[in-house]
């Protein structure tokens, strides 16, 4: 029990499913509450909405723990539920009704050149936050999934309901938009 903190999420989950002990339940909750909250608030941009979302997301997570198949990382599964929930909430809002509904982005001002990962990953993090807040939520979501949560293309495609090739294109375009926005917001740094 002394080394319980060193256990992986999957090990804790296995113990929880075997023993149904509140201790393991609390451990998983405390490992993920900040992560889920951060994601909810970054996408929903409203504290009260994010707090309600967190409650619902944790309900979904814990009521479905026995359905987790251990084929992916537990964190990926938790983030999938989080993104799915937030995307659904955003879709219910009028202005985001068509979130991930179409591939026809407004590309009139976006050059189709490949932006290197390094160019984005090394932007100072508070400026990066500002950049992400100034691109469409759809682009922000795929960039966070890929670069913050290390999700694979397949996982992202399942969450947003698009083909893998559509996701690759979406990420490429999102990177281009982010870079363009960075240049616009911080011209002196470029």
């Amino acid at each position: 029990m002394g080394n319980i903190k060193k256990l992986t999420d999957e090990e804790i989950l296995t113990l929880y499913l075997e023993k149904q002990s509140d201790t393991y339940f609390q451990m998983l909750h405390s490992r993920y509450i900040n992560k889920v909250y951060s994601k909810a608030i970054s996408l929903l941009k409203d504290e009260a909405m994010a707090e309600d979302a967190v409650q619902e997301i944790f309900l979904k997570i814990f009521l479905n723990l026995s359905k987790f198949t251990f084929r992916s990382k537990f964190s990926t599964w938790v983030y999938s539920i989080t993104y799915n929930y937030c995307i659904d909430l955003l879709r219910k809002q009028k202005k985001h009704k068509k979130l991930f509904a179409s591939d026809n982005d407004d590309l009139s001002n976006v050059k189709e050149e490949e932006v290197e990962d390094k160019a984005l990953l090394e932007i100072e993090f508070n400026k990066l936050g500002e950049v992400l807040d100034n691109i469409p939520v759809e682009d922000k979501t795929v960039l966070l999934m890929k670069y913050k949560d290390d999700m694979g293309i397949r996982d992202i495609s399942k969450i947003v309901g698009k083909s893998e090739s559509a996701i690759k294109m979406k990420i490429k375009r999102a990177k281009a938009k982010a870079q363009k926005t960075y240049k616009k917001l911080f011209p002196s740094e470029y």
């Binding site: 339940f25 909250y37 707090e51 967190v54 944790f58 993090f125 936050g129």
Partner: peptide, 28 residues
């Protein structure tokens, strides 16, 4: 370096931590 890892890191309010834990435990 990957500054995406640092972006949008926010701590959940204490009240939310308690509520969401109790709520989830109660429902289960």
């Amino acid at each position: 370096q990957n500054n995406f890892k640092k972006v949008y890191e926010k701590e959940a309010p204490e009240k939310l931590r308690e509520h969401s834990l109790k709520n989830a435990q109660g429902s289960v």
